[in-house]
């Protein structure tokens, strides 16, 4: 067989590695469904990094394996290897290439971050007034006692209070939302071990998040007891819910469906069970859901709602997953009743 010239071999190897990397970078199947406007941005960033990583991985691993085989000690050979201890141009090259690559990834990350709304957390353009940051009056619970460890106005968030909520951290208006007010605002509270969703405009409180597709949604996040982290993998968005601080996520869901809401920050023994769902409706479905629940919750006394919350799995704030452990965790209807707004407040809010 005729010897293939080295430059040609290098060229062929380069083309093969490039094609393989490009293919793998876009066909790795490592990312779940995309269901928000941010998701394709994040995925494209990851895919680009995956292409670069794959190429580097193949080159470096290939060299390791090749050298290990090619330069193994042969039987009876007790000599030393080739006494080369450096090569300045080569060293400059492998310092410069990664430097250029990481600067490129850095600049690209900044751009994606901005487009996702990462530079403008808490931009509620409809608010005409300034708020004192982070300090919000505490809503008393029905029996006048404050709930252990809480620092935030829990469930009973009214429109006025929602307007006072100004997330300092998280994701705000992305490029496509700049200058607009969000269409839907939901107050989200993390507690051991449940997410509670409160719709200040309608007084609805649920254990699952319902939102309309294609609408600009603002989630105001806070935590009652310890740090939790709100994550919807299909939205590629995550933000810690911190006791004593206000954070937020703003996004547009792009696909009707049901997706998991996961707590990503260790919050206690049943952290793994702190899961819920986000249901992305069509606008009509959403309106119907809104109306149904508004009537249902306004007509029911808090105690009945609380009882329902702990019985009916779809309304249970701890989600389906924890239901077997509810008693063990010490969640009682009374505890949940504390979290519910008094009926009068619901009326005034709706």
């Amino acid at each position: 067989m005729k010897q293939i010239p080295a430059p040609l071999l290098t060229l062929i190897a380069g083309v093969v590695i490039t094609l393989a990397s490009l293919w793998l970078g876009y066909n790795h199947g490592l990312l779940p469904e995309q269901a928000s406007e941010q998701a394709p941005l994040v995925d494209e960033l990851f895919n680009v990094m995956m292409v670069i990583s794959t190429a580097l991985f193949i080159v470096v691993q290939g060299m390791i394996i090749w050298f290990m085989i090619r330069y193994r000690q042969r039987a009876g050979d007790d000599t030393d290897g080739i006494p080369v201890d450096g090569n300045l141009p080569l060293e400059a090259l492998w310092t410069a290439i990664p430097a250029v690559l990481v600067i490129g990834i850095g600049v690209y990350s900044v751009e994606v971050f901005q487009e996702m709304g990462g530079l403008s957390p808490g931009s509620h353009p409809m608010m005409g007034h300034q708020h004192a940051a982070a300090v919000v009056a505490q809503a008393p619970s029905p029996d006048g006692q404050s709930i252990g460890g809480d620092t935030m106005p829990l469930m009973a968030m009214t429109e006025a209070e929602a307007a006072d909520f100004d997330p300092q951290y998280g994701f705000g208006a992305g490029t496509s939302m700049m200058g607009n007010a969000p269409d839907v605002t939901v107050a989200v509270t993390g507690m051991q071990y449940a997410w509670l969703f409160n719709y200040p405009n309608s007084g609805i409180m649920t254990g699952e998040l319902h939102i309309p597709v294609g609408k600009d949604v603002q989630l105001d996040l806070t935590a009652q007891d310890v740090i939790h982290s709100f994550w919807v993998p299909q939205f590629r968005l995550k933000q810690d819910a911190l006791p004593g601080q206000q954070t937020g996520l703003r996004f547009r869901a792009t696909k009707v469906g049901t997706y998991p809401v996961v707590c990503a920050e260790l919050c206690g023994s049943y952290h793994g069970g702190m899961r819920s769902q986000v249901i992305v409706h069509t606008q009509d479905e959403y309106d119907a859901w809104l109306e149904e629940n508004q009537v249902a919750q306004a007509e029911t006394s808090p105690d009945v709602v609380a009882a329902n919350l702990s019985k009916n799995s779809s309304m249970l704030p701890t989600g389906d997953f924890l239901q077997p452990y509810v008693a063990e965790m010490g969640i009682t209807p009374e505890a949940i009743a504390h979290l519910h707004p008094p009926a009068s407040e619901v009326d005034s809010a709706s």
Partner: peptide, 23 residues
């Protein structure tokens, strides 16, 4: 991201050390 640069220098240097050795 910048930390990747000096780390890469080490990795490449060790790989290059393998080259031409009697492993």
């Amino acid at each position: 991201l910048i930390v990747a640069v000096p780390t890469g220098v080490k990795i490449f240097s060790w790989v290059a050390t393998l080259w031409g050795g009697k492993i």
